[in-house]
Amino acid sequence: MPEERRSKGPARGAGRPAARGASSAGRGRSAEGGRGGQPSRGGQGGRGASGSRSSQGGGPSRQRDWKRPAEKQGPRSDEQSRYDGPPIPEEITGKELDRGIAAHLKGLPEKLAARVARHLAAAGMLIDEDPEAAYQHALAARSRASRLAVVREAAGEAAYAAGHYAEALAELRAAKRMNGATDYLPIMADCHRALGQPEQAIKLAKSPSVVNFAPEAKAEMTIVEAGARRDMGQLDAALRTLELAPLTSKSRASWVVRLRYAYADTLEAAGRESDALAWFHRTHAIDSDEITDAAARADALERRQA
């Protein structure tokens, strides 16, 4: 994976779900069994099949609830395991979610909404430290509420963070079809890069909606486009792409740091070491949070030129 690709997951941190959750208890079924078209899950037993018994001589059938003892249950299928998700710590309630995300869950039955919220919250809390676990939580939420764009978005962002690029692309495309949002385009373009499809990444970078992006999102797309040019061996085009961005902005925001770093890295790849050294220094000058290794890269270049 190209070294300038994002290493900390989605750019849309503010819209990311937050919290964690998924225990095997409560699989989105209510006590009465019917829950808005939600599929029943194996291992919970059914009502009717072997649970329906007719009284003697063809009297009215009576249903009784039963659950197969754990020791007699078969192994969970992959689909059932995704539905269950990882265990949810009790302290995760779902109230950790951003209000805007929680609002999208209000159309679900109360118990189902609470379960989905806990999974989304878990995904958000784990996405940096354990992206694979975050992805499993997001899949559990998706299994319960796949028709909600916010859930598909969370699954896509978690898949991206975990390195499941084809899955991330599919989920974000689904979310985009549902809500028409274009915020996902930089991540989708980067997924194309990771999948060896730089031409598709460049195509997304040229989408008309990119012009209206906020500075941070526009910078992310610029970095991805430049990276795609590099993947295709077009170093001069990559440099031109970055030179059209606000490299000299007085802002010390992380997106400016990342732009400068990408430019310095591309200059070095193009053999322009003196220019690269200058830009690594300019990157380090505003990188107070040390989100890049610009200082180390500058030191290595200085030693090489000594």
Results as ranks from 00 to 15, higher is better:
152 R>Y: 05
158 A>I: 03
109 P>D: 02
170 A>N: 04
176 K>T: 03
177 R>H: 10
123 A>W: 12
177 R>F: 14
184 Y>P: 04
110 E>V: 10
175 A>P: 00
158 A>T: 05
119 H>Q: 15
186 P>K: 02
197 Q>T: 12
126 L>V: 04
177 R>A: 10
187 I>A: 09
120 L>Q: 07
129 E>C: 12
113 A>D: 10
131 P>K: 02
134 A>H: 05
184 Y>D: 03
136 Q>P: 04
114 A>N: 14
157 E>H: 05
111 K>L: 05
123 A>M: 13
147 R>C: 08
139 L>F: 03
188 M>A: 07
136 Q>M: 13
133 A>F: 07
121 A>P: 00
143 S>K: 14
114 A>Y: 11
173 R>D: 15
115 R>G: 12
121 A>Y: 11
110 E>P: 00
162 A>Q: 03
197 Q>A: 11
151 V>N: 00
185 L>M: 05
197 Q>P: 10
185 L>I: 00
138 A>F: 06
140 A>T: 03
174 A>F: 01
184 Y>E: 06
183 D>V: 13
144 R>C: 09
176 K>H: 08
144 R>H: 08
150 V>C: 07
121 A>N: 15
162 A>G: 04
174 A>H: 02
144 R>A: 13
152 R>C: 15
121 A>W: 06
169 L>H: 14
111 K>P: 01
130 D>E: 06
164 H>C: 09
178 M>T: 10
113 A>R: 15
150 V>T: 14
167 E>T: 09
163 G>W: 04
118 R>C: 15
149 A>W: 12
125 M>W: 03
177 R>K: 14
181 A>E: 02
145 A>D: 05
198 P>T: 08
134 A>R: 06
175 A>N: 06
137 H>S: 04
122 A>L: 01
198 P>H: 13
198 P>E: 14
200 Q>F: 11
148 L>E: 03
132 E>W: 12
137 H>M: 04
195 L>D: 05
